[in-house]
Amino acid sequence: METSPLPTQFSREATIYVEDFITRLRRGQVIEAKKVAIETVNLMRHVISISRWDNVTMLVELIKSVGRKLVSAQPRELLIVNVICRLLRMVEEESEAVEFVEEEWSSREPTREPVSATSNKGSETPAMGLGQAGALLTRNLTEQVTSQLEVETMTLLGFKKNIINEINEYIMELSNIEDDIAKNALEYIHSNEIILTCGRSHTVEKFLRKAAAKRKFHVIVTECAPTYDGHEQAKALAACANIDVVVIPDSAVFAIMSRVNKVILGTRAVMANGGLIATSGTHIVAAAAHHHATQVVVCAGPYKHSPWFPFNDDRFNILLSPDAVLPYREGDLVNTVDVVSPKYDYVPPELVDIFVDSMGGHLPSYLYRLMQENYDDAKDFAWNIYDQ
């Protein structure tokens, strides 16, 4: 995918800001999901504020061009496309409101002063022969054009202000998303239950902590080798008095699943069909839970809903260094085998029972409705991004 040039209305300051964010993306300095989403929105707010655009079409092309440039820098980062599509949907909704105001204004009959039939004809020349009638017509036309320009200016300024306000509200929503999801914890976690979770997830951590404020239960955490993120999750949960935490190896998941009451998972992204792009090892946990008829609950905010379908599972995956699985010091063995260490697993939707976000619980089959509300026609940008 080639890097598209930035629009001509881009200021030097905006270009520097975009290039700085792209550099940090490529270096892996912005990794955590929530941070990626918030920084992308902050970038777009800054670009929209300082760039020159005169209409909705220019604004949409501005957002799309920056989105293409960010995606070309990190093609496997789904959250960037999700945020860009959400912003395009905001612009679409706001432009519909502006069009309604303009239609209301244009439907009004302009007030014109009556022209007397006995008005002075003036001189015989065409340029000077308009007299009083010509002056009145000229003044009416001038007032009408001036009024229209004032309305257009006020509409554009109001439109820009409303867009910035919408983006600010979206940033607040992203900042509080984990706490909003955690408010539903008591509906899904009950006293003395055994909960199993996989790897490190700040959303799941807050979800469990919120339930532990009023209930006591047990949590089993898989270690998620070779990154061993599960140890960090267990350490964070162990600080809570009402949670008894146990860490198990990934190989023990199937054996322990018969004792588990509920599986609660985090995810990097939710695909359009309800499948998950989650940390490596999640698929094993979900498959074992499906075999034992154990409920699988996924905590994910709306910003993780991707309009893409997983036609190619590897497109959205990242291969890590295999050194953690098979060290290079094992020279004789390294030369005879191929070791693959993927960062994410794809979990099909049939292994997920319910999604929990800030609005409550949803079945996987209902996700299409949520994505339609959040993205609508903006989904076309995501579908065509690799063809640009």
Rank of each mutant, 00 (worst) to 15 (best):
E193G: 03
N82W: 02
L25P: 15
T153D: 10
L137G: 11
S306I: 04
N55V: 10
I80K: 09
L6I: 04
V253S: 06
D179S: 13
V115P: 02
V325L: 15
A255E: 07
F381N: 09
G230K: 07
R268G: 14
C85E: 05
W308G: 13
S321N: 13
E39S: 10
S4C: 05
P342W: 05
L130G: 15
V71N: 08
E193L: 09
E96F: 09
V115D: 06
K64Q: 14
N42R: 14
F316N: 14
M90N: 09
V221G: 07
R89Q: 13
N317T: 02
E232M: 12
P310M: 09
R209L: 15
P327T: 03
R12F: 00
A97H: 11
F100P: 06
L370V: 15
N261E: 10
E103I: 13
K216A: 01
A234M: 06
A287Q: 13
V263C: 05
K210G: 03
V297G: 04
R315A: 12
F355T: 06
G361L: 08
A278F: 02
E350H: 07
Q132R: 13
N192M: 12
V356R: 07
A252F: 04
A300H: 01
H231I: 08
H202A: 12
T23H: 13
